[in-house]
Design a protein around this nucleic acid. Sequence first.
DNA 1: TTGTAAGCGTTATCAC
DNA 2: GTGATAACGCTTACAA
Lengths: 354, 354
Amino acid sequence: MSNPPKSATHKRARRVKLADVATAAGVHYSTVSRVLRPGFKGRISDDVAERVRAVARELGYQPNAVASSLRTQSTRSIGLIVHDMNDPIYPPILSGIESVLSPDGYAVLVGNTGYGADAELDLVNRMAARLVDGIFLATTRLKDPAVERCVQLGIPLVSVLRQTESGTTPAVMNDCFRGMEALTSHIIDAGHRDIAAIIAPQDLSTAQERWQGVQSAMRKHGLDLPEHRIARVSRMSTEEGERATKSLLDAATEPPGVIICVNDLVAIGAIRACRLSGLDVPWDISISGYNDIPLMDMINPPLSTVHMHLDKIGKAAGEMMLEYLANPELPARTQRFKPEVILRGSLQGVHPQG
Amino acid sequence: MSNPPKSATHKRARRVKLADVATAAGVHYSTVSRVLRPGFKGRISDDVAERVRAVARELGYQPNAVASSLRTQSTRSIGLIVHDMNDPIYPPILSGIESVLSPDGYAVLVGNTGYGADAELDLVNRMAARLVDGIFLATTRLKDPAVERCVQLGIPLVSVLRQTESGTTPAVMNDCFRGMEALTSHIIDAGHRDIAAIIAPQDLSTAQERWQGVQSAMRKHGLDLPEHRIARVSRMSTEEGERATKSLLDAATEPPGVIICVNDLVAIGAIRACRLSGLDVPWDISISGYNDIPLMDMINPPLSTVHMHLDKIGKAAGEMMLEYLANPELPARTQRFKPEVILRGSLQGVHPQG
DNA sequence: TTGTAAGCGTTATCAC
DNA sequence: GTGATAACGCTTACAA
């Protein structure tokens, strides 16, 4: 009958539509629509419903989501904007979000900004053009035009991991201030006094809170962080971590006793740089991270860090989005997850010397 | 004028549409459509074009992609189906794909199967309902109904990492057979004779090719792999790797000299299990992986493995998709990337005794 | 309970 | 060169 395709990819098959099912079942296509959609249970005679359903199944009818979306102004799709999916903090977020939204028929559109602010805004605009029902923004800066644009367009937005300065955006995040404050306190309690820090651009709440956490803990212990013990990364990557650590080691004759890194990737870079400088971690110098991304217990040395519960954050973000989709008038709420300090071998205690 | 929103999420703003721009510019909306879309350059008077463009910009007009899709039957979106984005092999694939497709205006829909065959088929159907222009399948099994469904629906499909039995699907993959054969040869050349292997379900070409690679290398050296030196994982995860390794160690009084693992995650699990059994890696037992996922050089001990060039595979898959989108009649082509053996500390040579 | 028909915002094919 | 006008496939008042 039908001629077989020459290759695996052949001409797009004509899709079965409502009208096809309708003629085959001998009813009007609006009836088919009603039968096939939930919410019209009692309003249709059983025999018609059954016949229509049978025909639909037989013809392999699948509703055209695009047509439906145009009509209902809802695409059942949501966007997720991240800096770079290669950063291990994002996959669990995506998984969590998807596990919550997928059962409700939502699809997730993923966009990488590549750390660019313009790209971020562009992604929001492109997603808006696609009429996404909502956007998860994991790249939120303290002042973020992308957030404003979502508000302006009336697109439900849930900020993940980070928050704006005003704090008026629905958000699910980790309490980075307390996490880093606690970790720093541990470090000080272990006897460290010569502390260095690698900090990230302060336009991200995560970076800001962590830095404030370090400072708060040190103030509480009457300690000070001199400028030559502070290094800055332009982004939280291993490469930047390595570079910043080199500059830190070059800035003084003696290496610090410990380097508190803004996150695990930066800490990995720091470990690499220390090795290259002939320093043993942790015997010559201690290092800490933040996030507890996978395998941080397996690296050499096992990294002391702060666990984030990224999967929980992802799930919670998904649930929060569902709430806002169901009720857009809901006031903005920020949900914070408690961080958990994880002490491992990369941190070595210091015994006060005479 | 307009009453301010009470919270960040307020009622969806009415979108500016073609008709709005048209009335404001005093032309028919079909004219606006022509002006704003490429391909009508010379066919429109300059003054009208300029006026329309100005008005469109002023009103912040953004074309409604859903309406456009309904009309053109093309959504400029493509699907990416993976087992679980938390597996580190996938993010570089996604990044590569996105970097190639995003400039052409494509959006990427990501779906996790959670390792389920039903979920995979379901995802294909859901993506088909959304009229995706194409699908990247990174979960392809040797016999895969999801692939057949795509062919049946005429959806351009590019298989990533894996291939079907027939090999008739466009695919971009690593040459796992040669990779694993080369790695195994290295291991044998280093003196190992008591070799064990942890293999994965043979319905995935990756798992099958790697296992065949191990067997081929051993045959070439006149070696044999007894059943008690073979363990099987149900999926390539650290948990399964740990479990399988335990069973391997329990299956004989003496541990093998080396365990060749089907991938890096399984190898991580193997290292954990060996440690728990009091074995030092690599002094008591050597371990190898496959993929060279990030940080494999930083773990303890650094893992010997085979590098995959996942980013290149992702980019190549994106480019292949663009080709098939441009010309669906193109015959199916399989592109294979050369693997690269990476020798690190987890593999210890054996000096032949007496 | 089912049929009729308008309309979602585009694109594309006509005329003029 | 521009305007009018069908689709695209679905949802949903409103009629019958």
